[in-house]
């Protein structure tokens, strides 16, 4: 992958007059993990939806490198190399785990054989190969979340957006996930945006943080910088919001 960046420039989103996002700007570089944090209802998921085309921004622009992708459909944005996971897991429950992962490559136009091959390899990398032939709907919650991440990776994306990947996982599972995710930017040359309420995970995993509250950016920078910003402490870290 080339050293492109995903740039979100002053993006606002309105839902019937209510401003869910207010001129948020951020950049994700290839090879880095950016943490997006903020209280419940602050607009984190809306920002991910605006990037991936599920929600259309009312103003602002989303660009990969020099190419603007703001008004494109979710399908086109996915094919441009941005894939995601969802806050509520959305797997194809009737398909097998292999088929779930293979679907991403199939959508990109790979042959069935090649897509299955890629899927099996990825599942081995993520220690999920034992479940390959099981129906995805029969997996436990933590494994479903991991399969969803693998499915997003199968299209060989340039940018991966993860909406609460560790939600509902126990400490062992989330530690294992942390280890896996931490390696991805370097090994697969991609940029990752992570939303999570698990502060210990976010602090250990992310290279940089971006904090929003009520749809506005209230802080950004390194983990250390953000941790000491008074506005952030007041809006977020200082309150009970730190527990999931």
């Amino acid at each position: 992958m080339s050293n492109r960046r995903l740039r979100i420039n002053e993006v606002s989103v309105e839902f019937s007059g209510l401003r869910a996002l207010d001129k948020v700007s951020l950049t994700i570089e290839t090879g880095e993990i950016l943490g997006l944090i903020g209280p419940n209802g602050s607009g984190k998921t809306t920002l991910v939806n605006a990037i991936t085309g599920q929600v259309r921004p009312s103003t602002g622009a989303v660009c990969i490198g020099d190419e603007e992708i703001t008004a494109l459909s979710p399908r086109r944005i996915a094919l441009k190399g941005i894939t995601r996971s969802f806050q509520q897991v959305r797997l194809f429950n009737d398909l097998s785990v292999v088929e779930n992962v293979a679907a991403t490559s199939l959508a990109k136009g790979l042959s069935l054989r090649a897509a299955r091959q890629t899927a099996r390899e990825l599942l081995v990398d993520f220690n999920l190969s034992d479940f390959g032939d099981m129906a995805a709907g029969a997996l436990n919650h933590g494994d479903k979340r991991r399969v969803e991440i693998v499915r997003a990776l199968a299209g060989d994306p340039s940018f991966l957006l993860l909406d609460e990947p560790a939600a509902g996982m126990n400490e062992t599972e989330s530690d294992a996930l942390l280890a896996t995710l931490a390696e991805l930017p370097a090994s697969r040359a991609l940029g990752i945006l992570v939303i999570d309420h698990d502060m210990s995970l976010i602090m250990r995993l992310c290279h940089r943080l971006h904090v929003i509250s009520s749809g506005k950016t209230i802080g950004e920078g390194s983990v250390e910088t953000v941790r000491s910003l008074p506005a952030v402490v007041e809006a977020y870290l200082g309150t009970s919001e730190t527990s999931p």
Binding site: Q54, P74, A78, F86, F92, D94, L95, A107
Partner: peptide
Amino acid sequence: RAVRNDEVAAAAIG
């Protein structure tokens, strides 16, 4: 069949 299970997720993988 992936679309049948979840249209939003299917669009999001392209």
